[in-house]
Design a protein around this nucleic acid. Structure first.
Length: 121
RNA sequence: UCAGAUGGCCGGAUGACCGCUUUUUAAUCUUGAUUAAGGGGAGGAAAGUCCGGGCUCCAGGGGAAAUGGGUGCCGGAUAACGUCCGGCAAGGGUAACCUUAGGGACAGUGCCACAGAAAACAGACUACCUGCCCGCAAGGGUCGGAAAAGGUGAAAAGGUGCGGUAAGAGCGCACCGCGUCGGCGGCAACGGCGACGGCAUGGCAAACCCCACCCGGAGCAAAACCGAAUAGGAAUCACACAGUCCGGUUGUAAAACCGGGCGCGGCUUUCUCCGCCGGUGGUUCGGGUUGGUUGCACGAGGUGUCCGGUAACGGGCAUCCCAGAUGAAUGGUCAUCGCCUGCUUUGCAGGUACAGAACCCGGCUUAUAGGCCGUCUGACUUU
RNA sequence: UGGGGGAUCGUCUAACGGUAGGACAACAGAUUCUGACUCUGUUUAUCGUGGUUCGAGUCCACGUCCCCCAG
């Protein structure tokens, strides 16, 4: 389950509707053109960062939603494991998520983490 | 060469790094996890959910009826179909070919607005014609004849031509259409031939309907099992409360228990037969669950080949195993090359469709950049 | 995932298969010193594509969008 660094190789994900609602209820979020980041409360934070993904029907059909979700997941596995304090995170896909350049998307998430104070090196 | 018609197929490729899921083998231990190596991992429509079937439950099976729904030329294919194949008819096109919910209008009911004399028992109106009467005449009246003319309308009671007549009329004739009968070809739809009739039966059934055939309902969030937790409910109302006979066991007896028959109640809308079960149904209150496994991928399966059949399709043989997620995997990034378009033409820029399995299969419908391979028709040119 | 229902002016709602009507709104005019109220007039619609029919908002097929129910 864990390596010598203590952080799992793949981050656990949010699964229950109640968990998503709890993250959204804090109201703490940052909006960038590529994605929206929501952050859960600090008092009941988990040991390691967890994340959930949301792609609504508004951004396109099933193929577009799948592609946006997969890019966000790949991004989250890369970034959150190294550069995020342990919290619950929810990443919401926007119109440009499926087509935006991946480096720009990475900068979007970096900016969101820094602005919300969840960044660490 | 140009313009068309039609059938089938494909629907990007390779590599590197980092991942996800499933499976096989091996190792480790905490016996269900980790690690390592290897294999598999979205479509022609996976879509819409419009039909058909498998499978599961409603305990199971048979018959009848009602209600409701569907299909509708004929023959065949199929597990089945509203699908497919072949044929017929009608319509369109120079043609290849395409389109068609294409049974019944003499079973009955209904509708045909406006216009028009009339919209369906044909008969009334205007107008026409011979005779008679009135009148100088124009014209009027009347006994009859006849249904050819009447601006409409989507549609007007066979059409065109000739004869015929006082005027006309299938009144007669020719051709076309229609109907009836006969025999011929075809399994049939239907076709064509001959004779006769002398025109009858307007349209709408994607209006109600009639006829023929088909259909029980719900759906994998079906359903089964394991585990945890809680409960093995309470109140009230309605309905039914039916028992009896026979046999056996215990017993002194009364009686109790067991089995069977008849009866009562329930078992998909109703009835009924076999069968099964023994209280049923409604309302209110209270309590609880949302984990895992199976179902779940060897199938009306794919590929190749041979045989039968015009074809749809069927059969034989060989060979292959080819997705299985559950906040839901099948990917992310980079590079190179295809293909298309444009140009500053040997390189740069832009583009590369529609779209994501969720129990499975057969179809239909809809979306789709671009490309490939046939077959056929018409026109033009050359030989 | 399965089942059911619907779509008519900008909004709400009518309409036997036969000229798509009404209310509110908008616009113009009248009234008023100006505005409101009131009166008169005008504009605007059958979800899309095909089919049946002489003729479809209505009947049929396919598609698009929306709503409801089960869980």
């Amino acid at each position: 389950m864990s390596t010598e660094t203590g952080i799992p190789r793949t981050l656990p994900t949010l699964r229950r509707r109640a968990e998503f609602l709890a993250v959204a209820a804090t109201g703490k979020k940052w909006v960038t053109p590529g994605l929206i980041l929501q952050i859960g409360k600090a008092d009941n934070a988990p040991v390691h960062p967890r994340f959930g993904l949301t792609a609504t029907k508004k951004i396109g059909n099933a193929v577009t939603r799948n592609r946006a979700r997969r890019r966000l997941r790949a991004l989250a596995q890369q970034m959150l494991r190294q550069h995020a304090v342990p919290r619950d995170y929810v990443l919401i896909a926007r119109f440009d998520t499926a087509t935006r350049d991946f480096e720009t998307l990475r900068k979007d998430l970096t900016t969101a983490l820094r602005k919300t104070g969840c960044w660490h090196d």
